[in-house]
């Protein structure tokens, strides 16, 4: 049974849907969170740190939605400021130095739009991540777990493998924003969701993502453990392969992967 694009948008945004930290708890051991961008502050919309995946040390970076209103306010509804992207980049460069793979969980409506974000260079922060991730000399795997909104999502999405969960969405803008720009009517979000082609199935068909990770019946929220297991299987297979790929070849493939779009 196939569900409509708009139903997927609603599924992806369900507050009970597992978040980055839910997967971090289930997939990794000894997670040690590391904080701060070293320039301005620590952005709680992005959680990042070190952990073991099996016996392999990895750097984990996750855009983090709150699991309730209070948490959501602390996490700014997973809309990062520039310092969030700079923290992510700092830890990616650290991962490169120590030869650790990087695993990113993407889940954001978009990078935050505000005065402080502009003053501190939201555009520059995202642009730097795009350019630096493309050249990072260590494997990167990115998984869109719920919402992949705009440049704010792409800033963690330049990777050797990009996956989406079965009911996740990934788009240039929220369907509401898109409808308000192109149809001059934000209430036409449902039509926009359909026209935008933002489902995992659409993006796989376009060759923009490498694969879809199956969700438990009814959606990821119905069985957190099963969902984490499905992700684990993909990570296990890919990490082994990517770690064994010579760096030149890895970077060449990464460039070509985005070059052909």
């Amino acid at each position: 049974m196939s569900i409509s694009a708009w139903e997927k948008v609603k599924l992806a945004r369900m507050p009970v849907r597992p978040t980055g930290l839910d997967y971090i708890e289930r997939l990794f051991d000894d997670f040690i969170e590391l904080h701060g961008d070293r320039y301005y502050s620590d952005d709680k919309a992005i959680v990042a740190g070190l952990a073991f995946f099996g016996d392999m040390p990895v750097t984990v970076i996750a855009q983090q939605k709150g699991r309730n209103t209070k948490e959501n306010i602390m996490r700014n509804f997973s809309m990062p400021h520039p310092e969030g992207y700079r923290k992510a980049l700092r830890l990616m460069k650290q991962a490169e130095k120590f030869g650790r793979p990087v695993i990113c969980f993407i889940d954001t409506p978009g990078a935050y739009c505000g005065i402080g974000a502009e003053e501190r260079g939201q555009g520059e922060a995202i642009a730097s991540n795009l350019a630096e991730m493309m050249q990072l000399k260590t494997p990167i795997i990115s998984i869109v777990i719920s919402e992949g909104g705009s440049g704010g999502a792409l800033a963690l999405g330049v990777a050797d493998r990009v996956y989406m969960l079965e009911n996740a969405i990934y788009s240039i803008l929220s369907p509401e924003g898109f409808a308000s720009i192109l149809y001059k009517d934000a209430s036409k979000a449902e039509q926009a969701a359909n026209d935008m082609k933002l489902t995992a199935q659409d993006l796989l068909e376009f060759g923009i993502i490498d694969g879809i990770i199956e969700e438990p019946a009814g959606g990821a929220h119905n069985d957190y453990n099963q969902m984490a297991e499905n992700i684990r299987r993909v990570l296990e297979a890919d990490l082994r392969l990517l770690v064994d790929t010579p760096l030149d070849e890895l970077l060449d493939n990464r460039y070509r992967k985005f070059r052909r779009i």
Partner: peptide, 23 residues
Amino acid sequence: GARMQEGIFSLMQMAKVSAAVAK
């Protein structure tokens, strides 16, 4: 900014051009 009518393809151009700039 990115051209809405080309959706996710426009978004991906950001990564593609940035990659070429980096090289």
